[in-house]
Design a protein around this nucleic acid. Structure first.
Lengths: 336, 336
DNA sequence: GTGAAAGCGCTAACAT
DNA sequence: ATGTTAGCGCTTTCAC
């Protein structure tokens, strides 16, 4: 019987630092330091150990390190993944956002733990070092639910809602609305309509910016409440306006899909876009771009939003001062 | 000085099993067993311990458990997320796929580690218990890269490519192509065209099914190679066909976006859809559904695909026999 | 510059 | 049914 650190014979081919230490003729702690690039080991040993590690395909045991360091090196991202009419699963929205988050987080040595809202109370979520919440929920309910975990948290959505003090990253919805208003004014439109759901925080701010800017030109927009973010919703809204004999020459829809529905209804009613009515949507979805006529809309940079979200959580985790931030929006003028 | 298990005074409010054990007047192992619902503890103590845990907000230390159990309880999902503007997604893997994966994995007590392809060599990926690869890459390169990790792996894509022996889940692309062929035949179309990139495994199988089925009716489809999955790509393809004076009365496009581009170009050329030319896409995107005219297409169930992917990896992890599987597709007939 | 000792929080073996 | 012992693989003291 060879006297060896007892080791299961069926051990998978995974080296530990101790193994590496044996190979290099140093102690485990030296290996640890060498691999983490510590200045406490001589360049020579450091190089030698790193060579060996590479050669033998050493893999750090993350659990062990995390246990020792008392953190998980993971950030949980909670996504609403039920395909609501509001957000189809095809939207670049979640995917691009996720892309930005993932990119930033992994390059900072953190892992992205993807979770749905239903798998909320999950073990691993509470073990995360931080939380990114994609979508604040109808009345901040999602926010409140996760707030109780007491983890560093950043939310994607609209800022300044309901006296909350958590960090928010989102599109500058106010500015988005204002830019649409400016456009309508410059086109000489005098009877604009907003279609959307003002209970939705982001929508509400889009409308606020729209309303304010128009107000500065003495124009009062008509508000058409529609809670769904669907094509049908836009169709209905326009039909309702028509039936009520409402005069209007411009439509700002809270989402591209609604805008497309509106256009479809307008065409059915014999109106022409944009001659009779200007229409502008929000989100710059591929649907809008491929629509006929190509839809004018307000674009936001999702990818960048994701990166920002990640930076903010990391900031909080590191104890740095962090503030909410709104991303600039850009008016994309196409044919409508 | 009170004799206490020495404990940092600044410890965050996080209980350990030992703490709980003290509270309950039992040993840590009993707590462990109680919380995991083991039958080795009396129902009474089990209940008592669980109560206490809930009351004091006990959180399991996942790292410690994973270290002890020698597994990570995590499956890495590797996504192609190259975020090029305009080219929305090279491979449009919708969030639904991730949703299905996440749902199934978390309900099995596993975590979803989201990773991009660039963050490949990441520490945590190799620490995962399994791998789900979304997109096999142009020539299986992605597959090969990750194969070396020696982890249980499942790939989303096309099966039977290049003598590979890894598990694949995907849409039944062959069947999808065949169903389109059948449709064209039943409409009496004699000069069909396929637009797509046959180097792409999934595309290739769509075309193969299409070609085979048409062949059984003595029809040979025209192949228009187009590598991009964009609207523009479809436009170009049709223009090229027109310039070459190619006769055709039906188009099968490898993706909805390409199909929409094709239709647009056809309309510009004064052709009518579907009277002069039938067009069918692939994927059943919302863009297609809201397109005018509403696009006929081949649908696949992403959500279910995700669930299946997850089940397969879990199966491999558990050492169960697992096989590749193709999801059924459905022809969605709309106006084109 | 390097090492020895200790322990992060948990659970599988082996007692009792 | 419950407890004792030991150790997963790593890194932070504190020595040398």
């Amino acid at each position: 019987m060879v006297e060896r650190k007892k080791k299961a014979p069926n051990t998978p081919a995974s080296l530990t630092m101790a193994d590496l230490a044996g190979l290099a003729g140093v102690s485990t702690i030296t290996v640890s330091r060498a691999l983490s690039g510590s200045a406490l080991v001589s360049p020579a040993t450091r190089e030698r150990v790193q060579q060996l590690a590479r050669k033998h395909g050493y893999k750090l045991n993350v659990s062990a390190r995390n246990l020792r360091l008392r953190r998980s090196h993971a950030v949980a991202v909670i996504v609403e993944m039920t395909p609501t009419p509001e957000r189809t699963m095809w939207d670049p929205y979640p995917l691009a956002l996720l892309g930005g988050i993932s990119q930033e987080l992994t390059s900072a040595g953190y892992n992205v733990l993807l979770t749905t809202r239903q798998a909320a109370g999950d073990v691993a979520v509470q073990a995360a070092d931080g939380l990114i919440l994609l979508g604040q929920g109808a009345h901040q309910d999602a926010v409140h639910a996760y707030d109780r975990l007491g983890l560093p948290m950043v939310v994607w959505g609209a800022a300044g809602v309901g006296g909350d003090e958590h960090i928010v990253v989102g599109s500058d919805n106010r500015h988005g609305g204002m830019s649409v208003a400016e456009r309508f004014v410059s086109l000489g439109r005098r009877h604009p309509v907003f279609i959307g759901n003002p209970d939705h925080p982001e929508m509400s701010q889009r409308f606020a910016g729209f309303d304010d800017e128009l107000g500065r030109h003495g124009i009062k927009p008509q508000l058409m409440r529609r809670s769904d973010f669907t094509l049908e919703s836009g169709v209905q809204a326009v039909r309702a306006l028509h039936n009520r004999r409402v005069q209007f020459d411009a439509i700002f829809a809270g989402s591209d899909l609604v805008a497309m529905g509106a256009i479809r209804a307008l065409v059915e009613l014999g109106q022409s876009v944009p001659q009779d009515v200007s229409v502008i949507g929000y989100d710059d979805t591929p649907q809008g771009a491929t629509f006929l006529p190509p839809l004018s809309t307000v674009r936001q940079n999702w990818q960048e939003g994701g990166v920002l979200l990640a930076r903010k959580v990391l900031g909080i985790i590191r104890g740095e001062p962090v503030e909410s931030q709104m991303l600039p929006t850009a008016l994309v003028l196409r044919s409508t």
